[in-house]
Amino acid sequence: MSKDVIIVIPARYASTRFQGKPLAPLVGATGKSKSLIERSWITAMQVPSVAAVYIATDDARIAEAARGFGAEVLMTSDACVNGTERVADSLKDLSQLPDIVVNLQGDAPLTPHWFLTALIDEMRADVSVQMATPVLRCDGQTLSNFREDRRNDQVGGTTAVFDKTRDALYFSKEVIPYTDSDYADEAETPVFHHVGAYAYRPATLAEYVNWGEGPLEKLEGLEQLRFLERGVKVRCVEVDARGHVFWELNNPIDVERIEAVLQQRGEE
């Protein structure tokens, strides 16, 4: 097993939109309920050739639940303002730093494990890349969901635009680039959904904490914008969902959406 990669799942109990979100129960195809954080951990455990998977939290309730289903836990400061800061803080308890740190956000249990593998492969193939994140081309149905959420003043997901070298130009909770076209449910669109996962070099991750929150990051509520504001390129890695529906748990209404997918997949 390679020792150059670890996965860290940051999780916090407090949330403006969904208090206690990591412990929210999600019912699978067999009627069995597992928490959001456990289902995210199960995804991470499916990634091959990873030295370790950790859950990083400052909350005793999450830590207890995580240890209960067999996860390794790294306790962090309660001053972390986002998941990237929490991942950075969690590394203080490791005796040896890996070459690559993968952040799987704890609200994305439908993330296919090959999305994370694609990030790891990109970082290994190009040592100049300091940070990478997956993007997924939206089909018409996903774009329709995003638009509907915005009409209802809800955040349905984050979108990304990038240059010809696949380095990010911007990320937004608005739907970008703008298009007023109608698309069939299964049709490709020019909009890319940013998937909530990151891979970093530890040295760049350490710098991130020292920079402090940037104005665009604060406006959008998107942690990855801090890198762009400091001139650090963020490599966007296009991934293939292979027919899998991808959706994050951002709002209580998303529980029903995610449970439907779990049941459709036949996942326990």
Rank of each mutant, 00 (worst) to 15 (best):
G106L: 09
D107Q: 12
D107Y: 12
A108R: 01
P109H: 08
P109Q: 07
P109C: 09
L110N: 08
T111P: 03
P112F: 10
P112E: 13
H113L: 07
F115H: 14
L116H: 04
L116T: 04
T117N: 07
T117C: 07
T117F: 04
T117H: 06
T117L: 08
A118N: 12
A118W: 06
I120S: 14
D121L: 04
D121A: 08
E122L: 02
E122R: 08
M123C: 03
M123D: 03
R124V: 00
R124Q: 00
R124H: 01
R124W: 00
A125M: 04
A125Q: 06
A125N: 06
A125F: 02
V127T: 06
S128D: 15
Q130F: 06
M131W: 02
M131N: 04
M131T: 07
M131R: 04
A132Q: 14
A132T: 14
T133W: 01
P134C: 11
V135Q: 05
V135C: 09
V135W: 02
L136Y: 05
L136Q: 07
L136C: 07
L136E: 05
R137S: 15
R137Q: 15
D139K: 03
G140E: 11
G140R: 08
G140H: 09
Q141G: 12
Q141W: 11
Q141H: 12
Q141N: 12
L143F: 05
S144H: 14
S144W: 12
N145G: 11
N145Y: 14
N145V: 10
N145W: 13
R147F: 11
R147T: 15
R147V: 15
E148K: 15
E148I: 10
E148D: 15
D149S: 13
R150T: 12
R150K: 12
R151K: 11
R151W: 04
N152V: 01
D153W: 11
D153M: 12
Q154H: 14
Q154S: 14
V155D: 13
V155R: 13
G156E: 09
G157C: 05
T158Y: 11
T158E: 10
T159I: 00
T159Q: 01
T159N: 01
T159W: 00
T159F: 00
A160S: 10
A160M: 08
A160H: 05
V161H: 09
V161L: 10
F162P: 07
F162E: 06
D163N: 15
D163M: 07
D163L: 07
K164P: 00
K164H: 02
K164S: 02
T165V: 07
T165D: 15
D167C: 00
D167N: 01
A168R: 00
Y170I: 07
Y170S: 13
Y170L: 11
Y170K: 09
F171A: 03
S172A: 03
K173L: 09
K173F: 09
K173E: 13
E174T: 05
E174I: 03
E174D: 12
V175K: 00
V175M: 00
I176Y: 05
P177E: 03
P177K: 03
Y178V: 06
T179S: 11
T179E: 05
D180N: 04
D180C: 01
S181F: 00
D182I: 03
Y183R: 08
Y183P: 08
A184W: 08
E186G: 02
